[in-house]
């Protein structure tokens, strides 16, 4: 029975959280208050874990909450439940898009959607950069513009950018692994 409730609650979260993983957060807080399956502190922990593992926060939270509530099967069921609404809705849209792809209206809509899409990708990159390359707290503390940037991170960024340009054949995963190594070696988080 608990499996069914888990499925239902996370299906609902998947259905109503539109956009990125953080869009699931309000639903997770609500679920925490209602079901007590996990606490607000658990959510905060999961945000930290999601930032340090692959996978969106919504996916990770559903696995974690499902596991805490009903063991390993619970973790799997809750995660699949979160993915089910996407699956159904996109299957419908994909069929529609395929059928009307040549329609002028669809082409026009895509003409407007594409710049919006990459604008949001740019903003997402900027959000990562704010955490990865800039230290606003240090800047406010010292008022020294030199403290605004985390210089070793900026240097690594330039090296990766140049490296990708020079060796386009190298897989992005290799650069991700190298950056992790550099982060550990040069204590990027300062701990």
């Amino acid at each position: 029975m608990i499996y069914l409730r888990l499925f239902f609650e996370f299906f609902k979260t998947g259905l109503f959280s539109i956009g990125g993983g953080l869009a699931t957060l309000p639903f997770l807080y609500e679920m925490s208050d209602k079901t007590h399956w996990f606490s607000h502190a658990d959510i905060a922990d999961m945000i930290a874990i999601s930032e340090s593992t692959p996978g969106a926060i919504g996916i990770n939270m559903s696995t974690y909450a499902g596991f805490k509530t009903a063991g390993y099967p619970g973790g799997v069921i809750a995660t699949l439940a979160l993915a089910t609404p996407s699956l159904i809705i996109i299957l419908i849209i994909s069929g529609f898009l395929q059928k009307f792809k040549d329609s002028r209206h669809v082409q026009h809509a895509l003409y407007g959607l594409r710049p919006a899409s990459i604008a949001m990708i740019t903003a997402a990159g900027l959000n990562v950069a704010k955490v990865a390359l800039v230290n606003i707290d240090a800047f406010w503390a010292s008022r020294n513009p030199g403290d605004l940037f985390i210089w070793k991170a900026v240097l690594l960024g330039i090296l990766i950018f140049a490296g990708q340009k020079a060796f386009p054949k190298i897989h992005p995963i290799a650069f991700i692994a190298l950056s992790a190594a550099a982060g550990i070696l040069f204590r990027f988080a300062g701990v």
Binding site: S52, F161, Q164, I176, G183, I184, F186, A189
Partner: peptide, 24 residues
């Protein structure tokens, strides 16, 4: 897990890479 220094340092590095990959 998320509090381990090695994890925090690794992901501070990975974030730099992610941001470059997105720009490209």
């Amino acid at each position: 897990f998320a509090d381990l220094p090695v994890v925090q340092n690794a992901f501070a590095g990975i974030r730099v890479c992610v941001c470059v990959l997105i720009i490209q």
